[in-house]
Structure formats: structure tokens, C-alpha cells
Amino acid sequence: MNFFQSIGASTLAKMSAVGRAAIMLFGALFALPRLKNVPLTIKQVYVVGVQSLLIIVVSGLFIGMVMALQGYTILVDYGAEGSLGPMVALSLLRELGPVVTALLFAGRAGSALTAEIGLMKATEQLSSLEMMAVDPLRRVVAPRFWAGIVSMPMLALIFSAVGILGGHLVGVDWLGVDAGSYWSIMQSTVDWQQDVINGVIKSLVFALVVTWIAIFKGYDSIPTSEGISKATTQTVVFSSLAVLGLDFVLTALMFGIE
């Protein structure tokens, strides 16, 4: 009997967590039209976006460089090193740009969001806001949420662009692939709609999921130091898993069936 009770209890707990998350998302989404929240959102874009710029640019550069190096050693055996450009560009735009950005974002900005909101809850700042008749969803959650959604596609685009330049650095300047073929075969292969826009859509979905998980985990955390540390860990684990799983689904929808 205890067995069934524990299954029932954990199912109910999970369902109600999903419900609370949905209510929070609803509150955050419809808190946009407040004009006075725009400066708050800009400040959060600075915190989650601009401060993630360094790690995004550096990892984009190195991932592009590594892909050019690895791709070159294989392609050169077939005399097809001209295809280095499209290889680097397509894998960055379709997969690595959105996915790696989302993973880095979850680690760099998502965990910080969870810890910040969790600590606000633990020190009863959120309750104080409510006491002063300020909706914490509007004042605290919505700006962070929108900042995450705005920032991540921008970061993913910068990641891809820097990665392609990094591939150029290694492929053309170091290994001696012809610069003309690097760019021109890339241009004839990469499609704006199919590759760039689909990458941005992917990145938007990841932004929604990662920011949602991060903020909800903070908002719903047990307000103790242990609870916050657990919530922060869960943010990184859950959002990474969600990003990788969703990536497969989105890829199958976008590129799987022609």
C-alpha cells in the first residue's frame, strides 16, 4: 500500500510542479506590456547576455577552429578540402551554434538566475515585494525571462559567425585551403531560410526552455541553502537534457524529411 501511495504522491507532486511552472510562465509572458519594465529588462539583457559574450565568443572561435582542423585532415584525403567551408558553416548554423550556446547559457546564466531568485526567496525579498503590492512575477521574473529569450538567439548568431571566422582562420590562413572556394562553396550550399532561420528558431525554443527551467527552479526552490544548491544543480542538469532532447526532435522536424 505504501508503494502505491509513494507513486501517487510523486505523480501528484510532479503534476502540481508542472502546473505551477505553467502559471509562472503565463504570468511572466503577459507581463510584457509594462513600459516601465523595459529598463529592468535591458539591465537583465546586460546580465545574462552581455556577460555571457566572452565565453560564447571564445568557445565559438575554438569550436570553429577545431572543426576546420578535424574536417581538413579527413577531407584532404579525398581532395575535397574545398568543402571545408560548407561543412563548418552548416554544422555551426544547424547544430552546434544553437545547442552549444544553449548549454553554455544554461551553465553560465541559467544557474545564476536560479541562485539569484532562490536567494531572493530565501531572504524573503519576494514576499516583501508582495507586501508592497508589487507583483514579483512582473518585477523580478518577467524581465529575466524576456532577457533570456532575447539574448540567446543573439548569442547563437554571434557564436556561429565567430565559429565560421575561426574555421577560416585555421582552414584558409593556416592549412592553406583556397579562400575563394571556402566562401563560394559555402555560399552555394548554405540557404538563408533552411539553415540560418531554422537555427534561430531552434535557438528561440532553447531560450524559452532554459530560461523557463532556470527561473522556475529558483522561484520554486526550498528556501534554504541546501534547497538553493539543489535547485541550481537541477537547472543545469534539466536544461541540458531538455536542450539535447528537443534538439533531436527539432532537427527531425526541420531537416529529417525533405
Binding site: L53, L157, I158, A161, I164, W183, M186, V190, W192, V196
Partner: peptide, 16 residues
């Protein structure tokens, strides 16, 4: 920076 990245992708990579 983002606009720069979009321009690079649009003009140089995807050849709009």
C-alpha cells in the same frame, strides 16, 4: 555585434 553577425551570415555565408 548581433547585427554584424547577421550581416556576415546573410551576405557572406548564405549569399542572400
Amino acid at each position: 555585434l548581433t547585427i554584424g553577425a547577421i550581416l556576415l551570415l546573410a551576405l557572406k555565408v548564405a549569399n542572400q
